[in-house]
Simulated assay, not measured.
Amino acid sequence: MLSQKTRYTIRALQHLADLYPEGRAQMGEIAEAQNIPAKFLTVILSEMARAGIVLSQRGRDGGYQLALHPVDIRYGDIVRITRGSLALVPCASRYAHEKCDHCLPESECRLRALMLKVRDETAAILDSITLADPIEGVPEFIEDQL
């Protein structure tokens, strides 16, 4: 499951992508438009600036803008920056691998084998979609689908 931080980060970066290349947004504008708490947004934008994704400019005409073209920012990278991994379990992580507590040896664990496939498919999808790609309308939620 995506953390709230990751979801907020994606929404903030989508907002900035909509303004690219010339637009700049102030923090309050992003917070209000995307329903993100301002204190949380400060942390998120600082982290994205350190990662080279966002530029900030102080002053009256200041604000935040993407440091890269939206086509160069993949959703998979955003998740990795904010979450550390695309894997659902630590033993399936490519870059933050850890052995699971209370588990079978990795070479025998079918759950790990399954989670490696899930991680690879998730990475393939998220790494193929960028902030420049249109994300079409959201389907209506229907309770009967549950």
Rank of each mutant, 00 (worst) to 15 (best):
D101G: 09
E47D: 12
D101E: 07
Y64C: 01
S107V: 15
D127C: 12
L114V: 13
A132T: 02
A124M: 04
D144Q: 15
L86A: 04
T82V: 14
Y8V: 00
P134L: 14
L86S: 06
G137M: 13
E143L: 10
A25S: 13
L2H: 10
A123Y: 01
M48Y: 01
K39Q: 06
R80S: 01
V79M: 00
A12T: 02
L131F: 11
I135L: 14
M48F: 09
I142W: 05
Q14P: 08
P70Q: 06
A25H: 05
H69K: 11
A113R: 09
E140N: 11
C103K: 08
C109S: 08
N35T: 10
G84Y: 01
R119V: 03
V71P: 01
D144P: 07
L86P: 00
A113M: 11
P70H: 10
A33E: 14
A38W: 14
E121Q: 13
R60K: 14
T82I: 04
I81S: 02
I30V: 11
V138Y: 11
R58P: 07
I129K: 12
L111C: 06
R58K: 15
P21E: 06
A31Y: 09
H102Y: 10
D101I: 12
L13H: 02
L131S: 02
L111W: 11
E121T: 06
T130F: 05
A124R: 14
E121H: 02
V54Y: 01
K99D: 15
Y75G: 01
T82K: 04
D120I: 08
I30L: 04
E22L: 13
E32F: 08
V79S: 00
I142C: 10
I36Y: 00
E136K: 11
D77K: 02
E143I: 08
I135E: 10
P21R: 03
C100D: 07
G84M: 13
V43S: 06
T82C: 09
V71C: 13
I53R: 06
P37V: 10
D120K: 07
G52L: 05
V138G: 06
D18H: 06
R11H: 06
H102W: 12
M1A: 06
Q65N: 04
A31F: 09
M27A: 00
G137S: 12
G62R: 04
T42S: 09
P37C: 12
D77I: 05
P21Q: 03
Y8E: 02
R11F: 00
Y20K: 07
D133R: 05
D144K: 10
D72F: 08
V54C: 04
S46M: 11
L2V: 09
Q145R: 10
L88Y: 08
R83E: 08
R50L: 10
I81A: 07
A87W: 02
D120P: 02
I73Y: 01
S56Y: 08
Y95D: 07
I129F: 03
C109M: 08
A123L: 01
